[in-house]
């Protein structure tokens, strides 16, 4: 059986909120290492990969591998019933028909119990190769969100160019063009504002802003976001969570014709 207690229901709410517009029906794969999810959007352009390690829960118990096939619209409806400071416990039997969600108020004696009917989802698990990226950029998540939201007003795609000058986000649209360049930057007082650029080779790739704006819904999960780029390879956008957990998005680059 599965029993996973999360001190902050809000964390799970934010994760589901960040991915629900990209993917609809997902398997939450539970085993003794934690709860993982991997799902591709319908157009096969973006992939979501989430790992909530068992250390993120207290307690965490999962005796066997259990795949919880859940519709994220249904999950969102139930998670709306949790207050943000509630404690969330996920429960399921070994061959479950339903997943149970229990919300406990830390301050009052209220206990709310919900269940969601599970679905059979036939999902192929894709191997994500270890990649030595040509450029890795860590920057404030809010800054990345702002750049994507600003540029989408002008164009549907953005080029991300990383060189020794820094990283340049540039777009061209019908009304004109826009570009934002960031250089490496260390803020001693506010390390969450740091911009760190590690580059082994110059990289230039073009991506759909619609997807990037969508990934940025995860900005509330982490102060910093990490962008990993190599020419001709999907972009990795990573939000690190506590206890070595993470939410990662992969996006196929646009290719010129």
């Amino acid at each position: 059986m599965l029993e996973a207690r999360l001190e902050q229901a809000n964390l799970f709410k934010k994760v589901v909120d960040a991915i629900k517009d990209l993917v609809q029906d997902c398997n939450f794969d539970c085993n003794d290492s934690g709860i993982a999810l991997q799902a591709m959007d319908n157009s096969h352009v973006a992939l979501v990969s989430m790992m909530l390690r068992s250390e993120s829960f207290a307690p965490f118990r999962c005796d066997r591998n259990i795949a919880l096939g859940i519709n994220l619209t249904s999950l969102t409806k139930v998670l709306k019933c949790a207050q943000s400071d509630d404690i969330l416990t996920l429960k399921a039997e070994d061959a479950p028909d339903v997943v149970e969600l229990v919300f406990e108020s830390a301050e009052s004696d209220r206990i709310s119990e919900y269940s969601i009917k599970l679905m059979d989802i036939d999902q192929e698990h894709l191997g994500i190769p270890e990649t030595d990226y040509g450029a890795t950029i860590s920057m404030p998540a809010a800054e990345f969100q702002r750049i994507c939201r600003d540029l989408i007003a002008l164009s549907e795609s953005v080029s991300i160019e990383c060189s020794k000058e820094g990283v340049k986000f540039a777009c061209q649209g019908d009304i004109g063009s826009g570009a934002v360049t960031l250089r490496q930057h260390t803020n001693v007082d506010k390390p969450e504002m740091n911009v760190e650029i590690n580059m082994s080779e110059p990289v230039s790739l073009t991506f759909s802003l619609k997807y990037l704006v969508n990934f940025c819904k995860a900005s509330g999960l982490s102060n910093q976001v990490r962008l990993c780029l190599s020419n001709e390879v999907p972009l990795l956008v990573e939000y690190s969570l506590a206890n070595n957990s993470h939410l990662r998005f992969y996006l196929a680059p646009k290719i010129g014709d």
Partner: peptide, 14 residues
């Protein structure tokens, strides 16, 4: 317009 590669092929092949 530029097209986008199918991630399915990328991850399956690699």
């Amino acid at each position: 317009a530029p097209f986008q590669r199918d991630l399915y092929n990328y991850f399956i092949q690699s």
